[in-house]
Design a protein around this nucleic acid. Structure first.
Lengths: 180, 180
DNA sequence: ACTAACATGTAACCCGTTACATGATTAT
DNA sequence: ATAATCATGTAACGGGTTACATGTTAGT
């Protein structure tokens, strides 16, 4: 049920089309919950059927028409209730860590390569996070309540990313000391 | 395909039954890749059919018989090849962070409660990690190669956990300052 | 002419979760 | 008796990924 609530969360402040939602799920909310456009379109249909979203077609000039979805009152209520439900955390699955259990002299260089690639990917992501933080979340104490929550999620991403970079460095050092 | 390789990874050094694998997937390798016994039994069947695992029934006294699986040579080769495949990271999904996007004066106390619960869960987990580290990974430089990999995975878990605790504290402070 | 971005969908398959199902042995 | 641990499975469902499918407009 989480995707439904993630989509509704994305619609709290703005009405969006499936395409726009899919784009947003590549950034912002998508940092913590990703979804493909195929999933999103399916879920939007279900949510509209259930009465949690309404839809209207918007004519655009220079672009194809789009179908814009908005939260209905029942939708807002369902979302608010969901926040009070309890979530059990399921720790992240990471293939790279499983691969580490298979470390040997032959594959050490390849694994080091994968760690390096991940490190670079995380650097790019952190750069993005920091840009957003500087622009919109400079003084968290003064933010309106909801934005404080978004800020905390962003900080979680930043902290986790910085920690990951440190781990990569440690891993690369140890991996580098293994003789091929 | 990752579950198959996680199971084979668990069988590198010891032959195990489905039940024993399911138990192991609650700790050690399971820290980075979890699976239920239902999934494991299915996957074992498939892997045996494919010739990557062999199985033999073991009679036990005082306990029901068990079916013990071991890696075949083709299995070891498939596992070794898998390590060289490239994995793209898919960032963790976390419902709690999505909930933070819904923060308001009403639900702040509930969310703080969930953060506290997660914090305690992570404390317990870190205690376990640290115990394992102290017992088996005191001097990483001197470990045999494969164990160095396992050590790095463990360190990743520890680092990530410590970071998470710090984030929880920051989050709880900010959440506590919100007036109900 | 071609590519990128805009825009929306269906179908098949695989993976994971929940529920159901059974039965032995050991300890309290 | 009852609960806990050992031990192995099936079935239904739902979520997620990949592949397939179509069409417009704007820019090079």
């Amino acid at each position: 049920m989480a995707l439904a609530h993630a989509i509704m969360t994305a619609l709290i402040e703005d009405d969006l089309s499936g395409y726009e939602l899919a784009r947003d799920f590549e950034t912002s909310l998508g940092f913590f919950w990703q979804a493909s456009h195929q999933q999103i379109y399916q879920e939007l249909r279900k949510l509209a059927e259930r009465g949690w979203l309404n839809k209207r077609e918007v004519n655009q000039r220079g672009k194809p028409n789009k179908i814009v979805y908005g939260l209905t009152q029942p939708g807002r209520e369902a979302l608010a209730r969901w926040v009070y439900s309890s979530t059990r955390s399921r720790p992240a699955k990471d293939e790279l860590l499983v691969k580490l259990y298979n470390l040997d002299a032959d594959n050490a260089a390849h694994i080091a390569g994968e760690v390096t690639a991940r490190r670079e990917e995380m650097m790019r992501r952190l750069y993005l996070y920091e840009k957003i933080r500087r622009r919109h979340y400079g003084s968290p104490q003064t933010l309106p309540t909801r934005r404080k929550g978004v800020y905390l999620a962003l900080v979680a991403g930043i902290r986790q990313g910085e920690q990951f970079l440190a781990w990569c460095d440690e891993a690369l050092e140890l991996l580098g000391s293994i003789d091929a």
